[in-house]
């Protein structure tokens, strides 16, 4: 597994916002349940993400971690319970939901860049069509963001012409262009070749250091150690364990977490 290669790196730049300086609750999940037919994929999830916090969600496949992440901007509906963002419960459908989603950045495992638009157009689409920004201003801001994630020189290319790592960085820039309150990352490096993982993680670590609130579904322990305030371990639809990264990776308390970590660490 790729995870091991980043795990042993020395922990540098470990300076996310200190825990006690985090803001108030931003994303609150309260008694959330979800069923896929008979399958109970999210079971009584209570979780609060504070302003400025970087939360890593980890767990075996099928544990419900991606579903949890996607439920936060209602790409997955939930069966019961409540999710609120910045004090506003998620609207059911329509304009209110679209407005709320515009404040929640999302980065997908499979990038999902708009295949018929250039890199630059991918980043400007939201600001132009959702925020109603002027074209010149949107372009300028998009170029700044592309520069920040290191792909400004690819602005006029089509997504298919870029490497996976580049595409994912564009996807991050696209989400940032909406000035989101919180960023969701659904296994952002799982579809990448090993040599491209770090270029994406570096961008994410940079974001974390700037104080972006982030929910990151990932197995990248290097990232968790460098940037996360808290690790949540999920198994079979439940949150089994929550701890600071160092504590979680060195001294997990639950058997499921120990078993899981032993499996991914021995590679």
């Amino acid at each position: 597994m790729n995870d091991a290669s980043t795990t042993d790196e020395p922990i540098v730049d470990h300076e996310p916002t200190p825990r006690d300086q985090l803001g108030g609750p931003l994303v609150v999940l309260d008694g959330v349940n979800k069923y896929f037919g008979e399958l109970h994929v999210l079971q009584d999830i209570d979780l609060t993400v504070h302003r400025g916090e970087v939360l890593v969600v980890i767990g075996p496949s099928g544990s419900g971690k991606s579903t949890l992440c996607r439920a936060i901007n209602r790409l997955e509906t939930i069966s019961s319970g409540q999710i609120s963002i910045d004090g506003v419960p998620l609207p059911e459908e329509g304009k209110a939901l679209a407005r709320l989603r515009s404040d929640v950045g999302m980065v997908f495992q499979s990038f999902n860049l708009f295949a018929h638009k250039t890199v630059l157009e991918n980043v400007t689409l939201g600001p132009l069509k959702v925020r109603g920004m002027k074209s010149a201003a949107a372009k300028q801001e998009a170029m700044d963001l592309l520069d920040r994630v290191g792909v400004a020189n690819q602005a006029q290319k089509m997504p298919a012409q870029l490497s996976g790592g580049q595409q994912q960085r564009v996807a991050i820039a696209r989400a940032l262009a909406m000035n989101p309150k919180v960023m969701l990352f659904d296994e952002p490096t799982s579809a990448l070749d090993p040599e491209m993982i770090n270029e994406v993680l570096d961008v994410m670590v940079g974001l974390a250091k700037e104080g972006m609130t982030m929910v990151v579904v990932t197995h990248e322990m290097g990232f968790a150690r460098k940037a996360a305030h808290r690790v949540v371990f999920m198994d079979a639809g439940r949150i089994v364990e929550e701890a600071e990264p160092e504590v979680f990776f060195t001294a997990p308390t639950s058997d499921r977490a120990k078993d899981f970590l032993s499996k991914i660490l021995t590679h």
């Binding site: 329509g94 679209a98 989603r101 950045g105 997908f108 999902n112 708009f114 909406m178």
Partner: peptide, 15 residues
């Protein structure tokens, strides 16, 4: 995924 990405940046159904 294309529609999901579009909805995720706040585009409505028609957009």
């Amino acid at each position: 995924g294309q529609a999901e990405a579009a909805r995720a940046i706040g585009l409505g159904t028609v957009q």
